[in-house]
């Protein structure tokens, strides 16, 4: 059998397999991340966002140990004590003052932030998962599947989403999870379009053909060869999804159709605040400012990611 092929005889000490040559380039993704961190504005936005997130998510601990009041007590039990004149910042140990029910505003702003951030992040997660899956499938398989996904995209694009969200909220009496799902389900089409476009150009590359020739299944090609190439796009889409989900949630909650009271969110803390703009403006400032700074940070991060990953924008 082995008259033509010479058996591999290893000289002692030499490695049998030459190690794969390490690529000189660090790769597109790493380059993008390096690019992202090279901008001071991006770093500042990221740091502030992380700090806000950590503080908001430890609102339970902070209210127990610093304010010495249980967070859920503040939300549920103090409701029964009825209307009270709001106390200004710094009075009676309330760092940011209290609201019209005598509840400590600092705790509510932090807890509200936890709720608002959770909705933003979860909704973005749902939207990106759905958008990526559908974008991958419709771009890769084309044909009828593509048509079906496009029809869905068209339908959702043409629904006035705020109207639909309000109607839906009448049926679901939204909590964090259901609101995130609804917002996510109504906001995936933008991402799907971008990802589909990328997949269309990726699926005919040589390395995909090579994988197919070697007998890789569609599933394997999608996950091992195409998905890694669209992760940067997914990140950017996710960033902007967080922004738009937070804007949507706040608007809905502000109108009273979002997160249901007494659970606070930055939006619903401000609903009805028009009554207090002259008497107790601190009730408006704290949640409004926290909301704006957080959304701005997420926006800057998403924008920075987009610039870092888009070589065309980088040249400008």
């Amino acid at each position: 059998m082995s008259q033509t092929s010479t058996p591999i005889t290893a000289t002692p000490g030499a490695p049998l397999v030459t190690p794969r040559r390490k690529s000189q380039s660090k790769g597109f993704f790493t380059n993008g991340i390096v690019q992202f961190f090279s901008s001071k504005l991006n770093v500042v936005a990221l740091v502030i966002f992380v700090i806000i997130t950590v503080i908001c998510y430890s609102s339970g601990w902070i209210s127990d140990n610093i304010i010495h009041q249980n967070r859920d007590d503040i939300d549920f039990n103090l409701l029964t004590q009825g209307l009270q004149p709001p106390v200004g910042p710094g009075v009676g140990g309330h760092m940011l003052g209290t609201d019209e029910l005598g509840r400590d505003l600092l705790v509510r702003v932090l807890y509200g932030g936890q709720v608002s951030l959770s909705v933003g992040l979860l909704a973005a997660l749902f939207s990106v998962l759905l958008g990526t899956t559908l974008g991958l499938v419709s771009g890769y398989f084309g044909g009828k599947i593509d048509d079906a996904v496009n029809a869905l995209v068209q339908i959702i694009f043409n629904v006035p989403s705020l109207f639909l969200l309000i109607i839906l909220s009448l049926f679901f009496s939204p909590d964090i999870l259901s609101l995130s799902i609804i917002i996510g389900v109504l906001s995936w089409p933008g991402g799907t379009r971008q990802i589909r476009g990328q997949v269309l150009s990726l699926r005919n590359r040589e390395y995909v053909d090579a994988a197919r020739v070697m007998g890789a299944s569609n599933f394997r090609i999608l996950f091992r060869h195409i998905l890694p190439n669209i992760i940067s796009t997914m990140l950017v889409v996710a960033g902007f999804d967080v922004v738009s989900a937070m804007l949507t949630e706040s608007g809905l909650s502000y109108l009273g159709f979002g997160i249901s009271i007494p659970i606070p969110s930055w939006g619903n803390m401000l609903s009805g605040s028009q009554l207090y703009i002259t008497g107790a403006p601190w009730m408006v400032y704290a949640p409004a400012l926290a909301f704006f700074i957080t959304v701005l940070c997420v926006y800057l991060i998403a924008d920075g990611l987009r610039d870092a990953f888009d070589p065309r924008l980088r040249e400008r």
Partner: peptide
């Protein structure tokens, strides 16, 4: 950029 992060209700509230 700043304006994109201010929803209509937010700016309206501030103006009010």
């Amino acid at each position: 950029v700043v304006g994109s992060c201010m929803p209509v209700w937010w700016i309206s509230l501030m103006v009010i």
